[in-house]
Write a protein that binds this DNA or RNA. Structure first.
Lengths: 211, 211
DNA sequence: TTTGTAAAGTGAATTAAATCACATAAAGGG
DNA sequence: CCCTTTATGTGATTTAATTCACTTTACAAA
């Protein structure tokens, strides 16, 4: 295959495929066809084949995909053949809940540091043993702990300035839970998690389909 | 305009527009052009006009959009000209943090009930005064409290059965934080919030752009 | 070794979404 | 009252994503 630009949607689907594949692997299944996997993921079989084809040939014609191999291949594609150290900025309700949440570590994301601006919190220890640093120590700690991704769980008003500090500290990946549009340079990749937008979408559907 | 099918992406952008418009309104701005709003939201001006055109004509040619009116119109489109009672299912780390999180109420979503399955939690009161019910009382409480949307914050393993119970109880909108693919009938609308997928996307970008 | 079958891989076709570019309408100034 | 300016609304165009449908390849059974 040539070098087409890869749709972002395809990348996100790879994550979905991994989730499904890992579940199938736990069930002891060794090989799966694009058709069966597609059904499990709720997508079109050709889409799976095409998504994978962007990166190589991972299947066996007439047989399907060896699940163990495919998981490994997709993880390598996504850069998940390693762990990623991440930092939480904002240790409020949401921030501390996320730190305790098991899903991050399960997928190889390790909270290696936590930051806040509240003097009462600085120096305290979180249940998992992390010390809460002042946000002004961001750059130093980011270097020390080899952190590559920042998770913003501050109020909206602080989000932009935190983002700026992260970028100065050399963090190029940001997962933003604050309900604010943050501006970053080209080199930095931001993903927003705004559940109220999702709720709005639900409200729209409920309103229009006569409920 | 005729009756084309409206892209889901357009619906989601309407939420983005509202966020920006409310911020502008707070700044005392009364009128805005699609061009300025587009810049603020990071989209193309024509896109804004087209998104709005799916639903009517809300602007004034040569002038722009009256912010106050446009907010009201978009809210009406999305079904946000009211409040929505929602239920939290799963009062663990994440669930209780979300309940305390101010963003829901700010956008008109009211946690009207909370459910869990842990006997130690049933009957306890949350900081905001909500009593934690047993999941088996879902149907009864949903009716009593006029709940239309369920938020699933349980472990993945419980997500599908909770979804089933929600649907039986007559809840047709689900916001799913559990990392599991849930199957629902046509009538029900599900939105998934899976931050590990977003993280995977960040990891991919960091890996490919030489970091 | 041959042959039938299953399923990946992929160019072509289709469908959907985003953008352009212009016709249209409102407001203000001369 | 007309002319200029400005910015909307929208058909046409372009771009992107998805799906189809066919070709290729591996395996297994005869």
């Amino acid at each position: 295959m040539k070098f087409p630009k890869i749709p972002m949607a395809a990348i996100n689907r790879l994550s979905i495929y991994i989730r499904a594949l890992e579940e199938l692997e736990e069930q002891g299944i060794k090989v799966i066809s694009s058709e069966r996997l597609a059904k499990q993921c709720g997508v079109n079989p050709a889409q799976i084949r095409k998504d994978l084809a962007y990166f190589g040939e991972f299947g066996v014609r007439g047989v399907g995909y060896r699940i163990e191999d495919l998981i490994r291949e997709i993880k390598e594609i996504l850069g998940l053949d390693r762990t990623w150290n991440i930092a939480m900025i904002g240790v409020g309700n949401l921030g501390s809940a996320l730190i305790r949440h098991g899903n991050f570590i399960k997928h190889g994301y390790v909270f290696a540091a936590a930051f806040d601006i509240d003097p009462h919190k600085i120096g305290k220890r979180l249940p998992n043993g992390l010390i809460i640093h002042h946000i002004d120590d961001l750059e130093k700690v980011v270097k020390e702990c080899d952190i590559h991704i920042g998770v913003i769980a501050t109020p909206a008003s602080a989000a932009q300035s935190v983002a700026n500090q992260l970028i100065i500290a050399g963090v190029n990946g940001i997962l933003n839970f604050a309900p604010a549009q943050i501006q970053v340079p080209e080199c930095c990749h931001v993903e927003n998690v705004d559940f109220t937008i999702k709720l709005d979408s639900i409200a729209y559907h409920l309103s229009t389909s006569g409920t």
